[in-house]
């Protein structure tokens, strides 16, 4: 795919990122359905604006990203390496981690993911400690879902990050569900407020609005990079596809309704139709070519 000539934070560039993520993940579900993938895949279809908006606000030469089990979008937004990702999930030696890590365990340059929920919070804080010690000016950004916030490790990590004013940003992707369990059955209080008693700055944003996510991520990353301490970017969104594959028990009208408010629909409404169609076609061809080459 052609590198965007537009600035990274422009809606056009973010649309390209979102379209790539959508095309790759749709293809992964298709490959899974055909029995071409082993294990499982967790897609973030419907959550692309968060990956695109946040990563476009980062300094990719130095910032560090810690991702989770639902991390394909974060990875693609970070480096655009669709071939390395797809090959990895297919378990091939030419995958980005030689087929060892698979979907949930990706690493390239400053990008790390792990499928254990919550555990990456202290690790991210340790990375932030490392970056602060080295005076690199980098910030460490961790992505996590609402379900993961039930893990105690976060609160130990919040405490240390705030205590030591570390350059740590947690991006919460609140998609309303912890696997199959709706938030109301597993979280008490106001989830977005969880980090506030630690003195951590929290910004809440519509996670389906790439521009809003990007603007908030820029504001928060500037704040964190200035040495003011950690921050939480709390993004509301909806996962359109099943938790992993074919295990969806959610209300069908709820899902149908969410398709009308998803980030790509939202971005298309603000962009020229011909631009969007051209991007969609380009990414479709790009992903099809990759899969054909790997088949």
């Amino acid at each position: 795919m052609q590198k965007a000539l537009t600035p990274r934070g422009s809606l056009r560039a973010m649309y390209e990122t979102m379209a790539l993520i959508r095309a790759v993940e749709t293809s992964l579900l298709d490959l899974f359905g055909k029995g071409k993938l082993r294990g499982t895949v967790h897609t973030g279809i419907g959550q692309e604006a968060i990956a695109a908006g946040v990563v476009a606000a980062l300094d990719l030469d130095r910032d560090v990203i810690c991702s989770n089990h639902r991390g394909h979008g974060h990875y693609l937004a970070y480096c655009g390496d669709a071939k390395g990702l797809i090959a990895e999930i297919m378990g091939r030696p030419d995958g980005v981690c030689k087929g060892v890590g698979g979907s949930q365990h990706l690493h390239k340059k400053n990008f790390y993911s792990n499928g254990i929920l919550g555990g990456m919070a202290p690790v991210s804080v340790g990375m932030a400690m490392g970056e602060k010690t080295k005076r690199s000016g980098a910030i460490v950004v961790q992505f996590a879902g609402d379900g993961a916030l039930a893990e105690g490790a976060f609160y130990e990590a919040f405490n240390m990050a705030a205590l030591w004013k570390l350059p740590y940003m947690l991006v919460v992707e609140d998609n309303g569900y912890a696997q199959s369990t709706p938030k109301a059955l597993e979280q008490s209080g106001t989830l977005a407020d969880r980090a506030k008693p630690f003195g951590i700055r929290v910004m809440e944003v519509d996670g389906n609005d790439a521009e809003a996510v990007h603007e908030a991520a820029e504001t928060l990353s500037d704040h964190i990079r200035s040495g003011a301490g950690p921050g939480v970017l709390y993004c509301s969104t909806y996962r359109l596809a099943p938790h992993s594959k074919g295990d969806d028990i959610r209300d069908k009208t709820e899902i149908a309704d969410a398709w009308t408010r998803e980030p790509i629909v939202r971005a298309r409404a603000k962009l020229p139709l011909e631009f969007c169609d051209a991007v969609d076609q380009a990414v479709a061809t790009h992903v099809r070519d990759i899969i054909e080459a790997l088949a």
Binding site: Y112, G126, G130, M160
Partner: peptide, 16 residues
């Protein structure tokens, strides 16, 4: 926070 300081160490080690 024994769990977190062990994670802290991993993070520090991963970053040099």
């Amino acid at each position: 926070s024994e769990g977190a300081i062990t994670g802290l160490a991993s993070g520090m080690a991963l970053r040099g």
